[in-house]
Amino acid sequence: MSKHVAVYCRVSSRNQQTESQKPDLQRWVDAYAAAQVIWYEDRYTGRTMDRPGWKRLMYEVESGRVSKLVVWRLDRLGRTARGLTALFDEFPRRGVGLVSVKDGLDLDTPAGRLMANVLASVAQYETEIRGERVRAGQSLARKRGKRWGGSDPGRLLYLSRDQVDLIVDLHQRGRSKAAIARACGVSRPTVYRILAQHDSP
């Protein structure tokens, strides 16, 4: 069975582009790829591994058709330490190498595996710190009497987990902010706030 090099690009939403990642990845391909190269792409949050392009890629990995996976940075694979470290264990078992171009990392080496786990922890730390900053800013705003997302003057709108998930899902499907606000019964500033908290490009 012939194997190929898989190149994976990801951004967090349909409004963002993967073009900034592709020149570095193409340079790696031109310099090092000795086998067929297949590109996979997602415009989807890194907080879940349930992404269309990623699922196609993992099907190929599990079928034994991938020799190496190349990404721009490790956080393009995902943004949770648990998800990333699981991949770092699975890829060597399946004989799949992993290269992160911007991180200068190659999972085929002991030093690369150590660095990969450190970077996975850093990615999760950055996500958690970003969330803490958002919550601290909201707390300070409430103390100063600031209101947002309310349909009645002076009323704060607290969203359920289902509402937040629906806002993010509709955004990933390419719906406009105004359409999302109407569908979820919230204001456009609330939609912007939820999307800003949810992930980074």
Rank of each mutant, 00 (worst) to 15 (best):
S2T: 14
H4N: 07
H4L: 15
V5F: 00
V7W: 02
Y8M: 08
R10C: 01
S12I: 02
Q16C: 03
Q17G: 02
Q17V: 00
T18K: 03
T18M: 01
E19A: 09
S20A: 09
Q21E: 10
K22Q: 13
K22Y: 11
P23K: 09
L25D: 04
R27S: 10
D30W: 02
A33F: 01
A35Y: 04
V37R: 05
Y40N: 05
R43E: 11
Y44N: 14
T45E: 13
R47G: 15
R47F: 13
T48H: 09
M49L: 15
M49S: 09
M49H: 10
R51D: 05
P52L: 05
G53Y: 02
G53D: 04
R56K: 13
R56I: 05
E60P: 00
S63D: 04
S63G: 07
R65I: 00
V66S: 04
S67R: 08
V70Y: 12
V70K: 11
V71K: 04
L74T: 09
L74W: 07
R76Y: 01
R76S: 09
L77T: 03
L77C: 09
R79Y: 03
T80R: 15
T80M: 08
R82K: 04
G83H: 11
G83N: 07
L84V: 07
T85Y: 09
F88E: 02
P92A: 06
P92Q: 07
V96Q: 03
L98F: 09
V101T: 06
V101P: 05
D103S: 15
L105E: 06
D108R: 12
R113N: 08
L114M: 15
L119Y: 05
S121T: 11
Y125C: 06
E126H: 02
T127G: 11
I129E: 00
E132W: 06
R135N: 06
A136S: 13
G137A: 01
Q138V: 15
A141Y: 14
R142C: 11
R142Q: 09
G145A: 12
R147A: 09
P153G: 03
P153E: 06
L156N: 12
L156P: 10
L157Y: 10
Y158P: 12
L159C: 15
D162E: 13
H171W: 13
G174T: 01
G174A: 06
G174V: 02
S176I: 01
S176Q: 01
A179H: 07
R182C: 02
A183D: 10
I194K: 12
I194G: 05
L195K: 14
L195Y: 10
Q197S: 13
